[in-house]
Simulated assay, not measured.
Amino acid sequence: MSPGDEHDYRGKDQGSRPDDPYSTLGGTRQTRTRLPDGDPGNPGARRPARNSRSLVTITGIVVLLVAAIAFANRGGGSEDDASPGAKTSGSAGSAPTAATGTKPVQGKNGTIASGFAQDEQGAQSAAANYAVALGSAEMFTKESRDRILDTVYSPAAAGEIREPQDQAYSTDFLEHLGLDADGKAPEGSTFISRTIPVGTKVVQFEGDTAKVAVWYTGLIGMSGQDSTKPVSTTWKTWTAQMSWSDGDWKVTGASESDGPAPVPGDVAASKSDTISKAVEEYGGFTYAR
C-alpha cells in the first residue's frame, strides 16, 4: 500500500485570533450569554450555561481517532497498493516482506509444499519452497534425493537431471564433506545443509510459464568435535524456469550464481554442539510471497 496523504483535521479557517480562549476545533468561536437568575426556590426556571467548548473538543478528538483508525486500515487492490515503493503488483518495492493477501499454498506433497496459485505470487512461493527442498540435507542421500526431484521438477526434467545429480553427489564429494557413501554423518556428528530464502523476484511471467529468481543464504558443513568441515554460510541466487502442470508449478530448468553477499558480521562462531542442538530444535518454514 502506498502511503496516504496526511490529512489536516483542524479545518480550513483557523480564524484571526488563535489565542481566543473560546476557539475550538474547526475555528468556531463559542460565546456564552448569562441569563437572569430565576426563582431560587425553582431551580428549573434557570438552565445552567453548558460548556460547549468541551463538547466540541471531545467530538473533535473522537473524529480524529476514527479517521486515524480508518487511515491505518485502509487497503486497496491497485498496482500502486502492492507494497510501498512498488511500481507493479509483481515488484517487491521497498517492503518485500509485505503480505500479498493471496493464499500461498493448499497442501503438501510429503514435506514439500504444493498446490500453489497460478499467478506471480504462487510462482514465487513455489520457487522459494523448491529452493529449500533442493538445498536440504535430504539431497545427500539417494532415496530422498529422487523423491525431491520427482516432486519439484516436471517428469521430463526430473528424468533428465537425475543422472547428473547422482554424479554431482558422488562418493568423493560426500567424503569431502565428511559423509559416507550413503550420505550419512559419522557417529556423534551432525551434517547440516539448509537453504533460507531472503527474497524472490519474477524475471518473466506468461500465465502458464514463469522464471523466478530466489536470493538465499545457506548453511552447510559438519557439526562435530572432529569435524574438518565446520558449518559455514553461503550466499547464492537460484533461478528457476517453471511451467504449470497438473495443477501446480514444476521446475523445467534452473541455474545458480554466487551472491549478492553482504559483509560478514562480527558475531563470534558458536561451538559445534550449539549448532547441532539448534538444528535439532529449530524447524523450517513454508515460504510464501
Rank of each mutant, 00 (worst) to 15 (best):
S276W: 02
P104L: 08
Q225S: 15
D119C: 03
V202R: 06
Y9H: 11
S94T: 08
D81M: 14
S83A: 15
A158T: 03
T111H: 10
H7Q: 09
I161L: 07
G159T: 06
V202C: 07
F71D: 04
V56D: 13
P262L: 11
S94R: 13
T190I: 07
G259K: 03
V198R: 12
F116P: 03
G38H: 05
I61E: 06
S52D: 14
D5E: 11
M222N: 09
G283D: 02
V263M: 11
E163D: 10
T217N: 12
S2P: 10
T234P: 14
D273H: 15
E160P: 01
I61N: 08
A240N: 06
L134D: 00
D273I: 14
Y282N: 13
L174T: 09
A168I: 00
T237V: 09
I161Q: 04
G259F: 01
L55A: 15
G77C: 05
Q124C: 09
P21F: 07
A128P: 00
G259L: 01
S144Q: 13
G183S: 12
K201P: 04
T274V: 11
T286N: 03
G38Y: 08
N73F: 12
T252L: 01
Y22R: 06
P96E: 13
R162Y: 00
T97A: 15
D119N: 09
E138C: 09
D19E: 05
F205S: 05
G188V: 15
Q14L: 12
P40H: 08
K211R: 11
G253D: 09
T24M: 07
F140Y: 14
W238C: 03
G253T: 01
S2L: 11
S144I: 03
A70S: 05
G265Q: 10
D266C: 07
A126E: 05
G188T: 14
A70F: 04
D258C: 02
W238G: 06
V279T: 07
V203N: 05
K271Q: 14
T274E: 15
P186K: 13
A131R: 09
Y22C: 08
A131Q: 09
Y130E: 04
G188W: 14
R147Y: 01
L65N: 02
E281S: 04
G26M: 00
I196F: 15
E6M: 09
A131V: 10
G283T: 02
Y287W: 10
G101M: 11
E280S: 07
K184S: 11
G90R: 04
D258T: 09
P164D: 05
T97P: 04
N109S: 15
A131P: 00
T237F: 07
D150Q: 12
Q121V: 03
S243C: 00
A278Q: 09
P96R: 12
Q118F: 00
G218V: 09
D266I: 06
K103S: 14
A128C: 08
D208C: 01
I161D: 02
G93F: 14
A72R: 10
L177V: 08
T88K: 14
H7D: 06
G183K: 08
L174E: 08
V214A: 10
A288H: 07
I161R: 06
S2D: 12
V132E: 01
R10E: 00
S255K: 04
E79Y: 13
D20P: 00
E79P: 02
G265E: 06
T200A: 12
R10I: 00
S223G: 14
